[in-house]
Write a protein that binds this DNA or RNA. Structure first.
Length: 249
DNA sequence: AACACGGCCAACCGCCTCACG
DNA sequence: ACGTGAGGCGGTTGGCCGTGT
């Protein structure tokens, strides 16, 4: 209150895909300083982005504890189970998958799992068998979400004894995670990064293009030699954000 | 080779809740 | 008790890319 600036003052702010330089700046800043307040991050990190955009980029893409690669069959099955329980509460579902983001799970649901369920003759909303009249034609699938299924969705919401907005997570993300800041520091060795050249296997639309001079040349020269993000997977479940703030600041 | 189409996913939008003064 | 901003969340969009014609 009292004249606080809004986070998303859009004047002069950049939008759209992040560049490698921006990623680099954000990564460097957060690894060195933590997150004092997202609103302040863009200015302090030298980015022409709003705080929200920075937060999203960090959470969905730059976070070192992210698990890379496609969701496995087993994970998809578990998503289906959790969805039947929680509905479209993606963050809650994501909390059961360390290293996965709600956005990732949501995308997976919308692009793959929904289809999978429909092929199996199950309603993606109610998880119950679709009435025969609605299963048969692919043309019909196009309008699948209309009318009756929407009503079903409404019923589902009612049945959910609406948890929306409640913070009573049964299994909070990173709960019980031990502090491994030291391990992390050793692993990256490079937290004073020029190095924040965090390697990854997934060829981001921006990551390889326009590598800054801070990126080790061999990563540029030989993408096949890149250390995979998956190399971090053994840290899954034990990476605690707060740990970054220790020994890095 | 050129174009159309559909799938995928990163990023944005707008709303909601919570914390704080 | 109330107003406000920050952060969190889910829905949606737009652009890229692969595939088919």
């Amino acid at each position: 209150m009292m004249g606080r600036q809004t986070c998303c003052d859009k004047i002069g702010l950049k939008r759209g895909p992040w560049t490698i330089e921006e990623d680099h700046k954000l990564m460097n800043f957060i690894l060195k300083n933590g997150i004092p307040c997202w609103r302040l991050v863009p200015n302090l990190a030298g980015l022409l982005r709003c705080g929200k955009s920075c937060r999203l980029r960090w959470i969905n893409y730059l976070r070192p504890d992210l698990k890379r690669g496609a969701l496995t069959e087993a994970e998809e099955d578990m998503i289906i189970q959790l969805h039947s329980r929680f509905g479209n509460r993606w963050s809650k579902i994501a909390s059961h998958f360390p290293g996965r983001t709600d956005n990732e799970i949501k995308n997976c649901w919308n692009t793959r799992i929904k289809k999978k369920l429909k092929v199996l003759g199950l309603d993606p909303i109610t998880h119950k068998p679709i009435e025969r009249s609605r299963v048969f034609s692919t043309k019909d699938k196009g309008v699948f979400e209309s009318n009756s299924s929407r009503n079903q969705e409404n019923n589902f919401e009612l049945n959910l004894h609406d948890n929306r907005g409640s913070r009573d997570d049964e299994m909070p993300q990173r709960e019980g995670i031990s502090n491994i800041g030291q391990q992390f520091n050793e692993m990256w060795g490079c937290l004073d990064v020029g190095s924040s050249a965090i390697p990854q296997t997934k060829p981001s639309n921006t990551f390889y293009a326009g590598m800054s001079e801070d990126f080790p040349q061999h990563w540029i020269d030989s993408p096949n030699n890149l250390l995979s993000w998956d190399g971090l997977n053994h840290l899954e479940g034990i990476f605690l954000w707060e740990s970054l703030e220790i020994g890095v600041g």
